[in-house]
Design a protein around this nucleic acid. Sequence first.
DNA 1: CTGAAAGCGCTTACAG
DNA 2: CTGAAAGCGCTTACAG
Lengths: 330, 330
Amino acid sequence: MRRPTLEVVAARAGVSRSSVSRVVNGEATVAPEIREVVMRAVRELGYVPNAAARNLVTRRTHAVAVVVADPPQGVVSDDPLFSTVVRAVSRELEAAGKQVVLMLAESDRSRARVEEYVAGGHVDGVMLVALHGTDPLPAALARTGLPVASFNRTCAPDVPYVELDNAAGAALAVRHLLERGRRRIATITGPLDLFEARERLDGYRAALRDTGRRSIVALGDFTRASGAEAMRQLLEDDPELDAVFAANDLMAIGALRTLRQVGLRVPEDVAVVGFDDIEAAAYTVPALTSVRSPMADQARATVRLLLGLIEGGSRDRVVMPNALVVRDSS
Amino acid sequence: MRRPTLEVVAARAGVSRSSVSRVVNGEATVAPEIREVVMRAVRELGYVPNAAARNLVTRRTHAVAVVVADPPQGVVSDDPLFSTVVRAVSRELEAAGKQVVLMLAESDRSRARVEEYVAGGHVDGVMLVALHGTDPLPAALARTGLPVASFNRTCAPDVPYVELDNAAGAALAVRHLLERGRRRIATITGPLDLFEARERLDGYRAALRDTGRRSIVALGDFTRASGAEAMRQLLEDDPELDAVFAANDLMAIGALRTLRQVGLRVPEDVAVVGFDDIEAAAYTVPALTSVRSPMADQARATVRLLLGLIEGGSRDRVVMPNALVVRDSS
DNA sequence: CTGAAAGCGCTTACAG
DNA sequence: CTGAAAGCGCTTACAG
């Protein structure tokens, strides 16, 4: 049962295809009685315009690719932020009448697919999420000539992006710990090929440097397991430490677990602060102090940036502010 | 800078458009020297076939819509399962050469958009996730004539689906608690307009009925907050209860929080069991016993079901088994 | 094995 | 305001 075409609707309504097209596209220059009769035919036949035909001539797809360029270990898409970001982006794009085409770029093969897909004219623009700092994908996509915006910082010079003020957020956490009287403040970093992770580490270092204290650093990869492991490492390195700033909440949750296992009390013995303020932060024991990054806001900002580019707007970089949510862990 | 067309490639290679098309589509019936010269032209010009033109004539899009039909409160897409499911589905579809078009169906307006999009021939098939039992969307989509498969049970008679054996999973949890010597076992349900929630409640009831014990039920909606609230309610209703089965882990996490707040020990005073075995279950205090539902497997099964339908296969219903992961909370 | 031609279902100047 | 016609960029019988 083939779907009816414009042709069929025109025949039914006794008008030309042009007129049907105009009515369907809501053009003003149509006589009321023609509009009327066309609308009826459309309704009766259950006519829906064929997308491919329309795209072919208009060169507009009303679709946007959201490319989640996940590092191999799946840091980001395993993250609670994944759903927050994907949802916020979807809602915003939908409100703007754009369809979301979700693409996971993991393997080299899937990256090649993404490039081909975008170059094939399937979408009007591309939004990138969660890139390695050195990911070549942004630059490759920018080369297609389509509008591209990134949810986080990239190193492609011509791809505008939105980002958190990661360094400032980290500094906020460290200063809070200092105010609480903590002396030996360690940090657990994210994977340092991500800008976010590097910037949060920088913020931590800068805040400590201001007070002449030394850094105590363990590497993590943004997963709970790595946070637990890094905490163990830190305690070995410096049994005297009295605070830890984890570069995201998942690692902070892992750190809490290790501290409990070795019998250290939080916050009495060791204070813990995370980053992102995911929903689970309010449900840890004790509840986790965290830097709140308004992910949904960031997602909205990126969408607006991209929509602006599609409409031919400017390519400004946007930086989102942070706040600290103090709970029981510090 | 318009992208080169088949025409341009043909001119460059000095052959017909037909030949270029054949080479690009990997047809066997092409002389090696023609293939050679076409490939070179393609490479030099950076030719990528226009998707709209191709779809228009082949009536194939190589795309699949993944429709997350979330209840208004956003139960599902706030859920850690969202990312698990979306990722597993994306990977599987990508491996099959299908593009994922993610659509959130929340408001009536966005539901209408989904229907129109699907009817417009944008996709080869539809995968539904997270429906109310009474959601009219599955039936509406089935009416477009396109292949539709659901990640969970629906009430549309002609939409095949994959589902967990929810009742059996719940019964597993209850029997485990009985074996541990618990006498007064309560449950916190999910929103009862979801089949999953109803079936888990049924399983709980059936398992208790077998032993002649009575049900103690509080309603939740699959969120942490509702779990915390329901737990409070249960303790008021029956201060003697010694176990609770929450219909998902998030609510179990909320229940743990309430129990801690009122000074009850887990599992000494009250044992807690959840459902889904999300990653966070291993990180609660105490670590949460949970019914493991192989989400990724379920996602894969649904994708295979849908791909089968697209290829013209059968419409079998699939039921996935469950297991219990025993941790410290019971 | 190759090419000329028709056609997929739309939109959009262009006349009238 | 309306319609006839061209054209978007491809694929695919059909001849040869």
